[in-house]
Amino acid sequence: MSDEIPETLATYLRLRGLEPRPTARRRRRRLDDDENAPFSAGRDPRGLGEVLSGWTTEVGWEHELSREDLVRRWAEVAGAETAAHTHPVSLERGVLTVRCDSTAWAKQLRLMRAHIVTTIGERFSEAGVEDVRFVGPDVPSWKWGTRAVPGRGPRDTYG
């Protein structure tokens, strides 16, 4: 092999103000490690679901994804009729808060709490739900903004 560089590359280097010099022979990298060896274990292509499952486990997203899956599948956990009158609001410190359309629905679901927590534990064990809290609809509040003054509130407002 010749150690001279092609004339086109030498011209380019001279125009750039660089000294053309002969190229060194490139060493070929040896594949000593088993990871890069062809036909070795672990080099077969995997399915997209398997790759994503391994990646989410590696990154640590399985708890968040399980929580999102619980909210998305709330109708399967609670039942279609119950899900029409309720929706999950938050999940903090192992307590799932569910807002109901009326206080009657909230009271009825409080009686069924053990069954719902068991169902959630079986289907969505990675979500970390330890308890479920059912709340009724919000009542109107007279407190507006961050600077609400504590006290008895408005009194002679209605007449």
Rank of each mutant, 00 (worst) to 15 (best):
residue 22 P to A: 05
residue 76 E to S: 14
residue 69 D to F: 13
residue 155 R to T: 09
residue 127 A to Q: 05
residue 133 R to P: 00
residue 19 E to L: 01
residue 23 T to N: 10
residue 128 G to Y: 03
residue 34 D to E: 14
residue 140 P to C: 01
residue 11 T to E: 10
residue 23 T to W: 12
residue 52 L to T: 14
residue 28 R to C: 00
residue 9 L to S: 01
residue 148 A to M: 04
residue 67 R to P: 05
residue 12 Y to S: 11
residue 101 D to W: 00
residue 76 E to D: 15
residue 89 V to N: 09
residue 135 V to N: 08
residue 19 E to F: 03
residue 102 S to P: 02
residue 68 E to G: 15
residue 90 S to C: 00
residue 110 R to Q: 11
residue 144 W to M: 10
residue 100 C to D: 03
residue 35 E to S: 12
residue 113 R to K: 13
residue 139 V to E: 12
residue 1 M to T: 07
residue 101 D to M: 04
residue 72 R to L: 08
residue 55 W to V: 07
residue 159 G to N: 14
residue 140 P to T: 11
residue 46 R to K: 15
residue 97 T to R: 12
residue 125 S to D: 10
residue 156 D to E: 07
residue 23 T to A: 15
residue 78 A to T: 09
residue 20 P to D: 07
residue 121 G to S: 13
residue 75 A to N: 12
residue 30 R to K: 10
residue 2 S to C: 01
residue 133 R to C: 11
residue 105 W to N: 10
residue 82 T to A: 09
residue 19 E to D: 02
residue 84 A to M: 03
residue 28 R to D: 00
residue 89 V to L: 08
residue 66 S to C: 13
residue 85 H to W: 01
residue 107 K to R: 14
residue 26 R to Y: 00
residue 144 W to T: 14
residue 127 A to M: 09
residue 137 P to S: 07
residue 25 R to M: 02
residue 6 P to G: 06
residue 98 V to M: 02
residue 25 R to H: 02
residue 18 L to M: 05
residue 112 M to A: 15
residue 28 R to V: 10
residue 74 W to Q: 04
residue 13 L to R: 05
residue 132 V to G: 05
residue 115 H to Q: 15
residue 61 W to H: 02
residue 5 I to Y: 01
residue 122 E to G: 14
residue 88 P to M: 08
residue 13 L to Q: 04
residue 35 E to R: 15
residue 146 T to C: 00
residue 134 F to C: 00
residue 31 L to F: 01
residue 8 T to P: 00
residue 102 S to E: 09
residue 77 V to Y: 10
residue 127 A to I: 04
residue 145 G to W: 03
residue 12 Y to K: 07
residue 86 T to Q: 06
residue 76 E to F: 10
residue 4 E to T: 12
residue 27 R to P: 03
residue 87 H to G: 03
residue 64 E to K: 11
residue 60 G to C: 08
residue 19 E to H: 04
residue 99 R to P: 04
residue 29 R to A: 13
residue 88 P to D: 02
residue 25 R to K: 11
residue 5 I to N: 06
residue 91 L to Q: 05
residue 113 R to G: 04
residue 137 P to R: 04
residue 40 S to G: 13
residue 109 L to S: 01
residue 79 G to D: 01
residue 67 R to M: 12
residue 5 I to G: 03
residue 109 L to F: 00
residue 41 A to F: 09
residue 81 E to C: 00
residue 80 A to I: 06
residue 11 T to P: 01
residue 144 W to D: 12
residue 118 T to E: 15
residue 53 S to H: 13
residue 91 L to R: 01
residue 112 M to K: 15
residue 119 T to V: 10
residue 59 V to A: 09
residue 127 A to G: 02
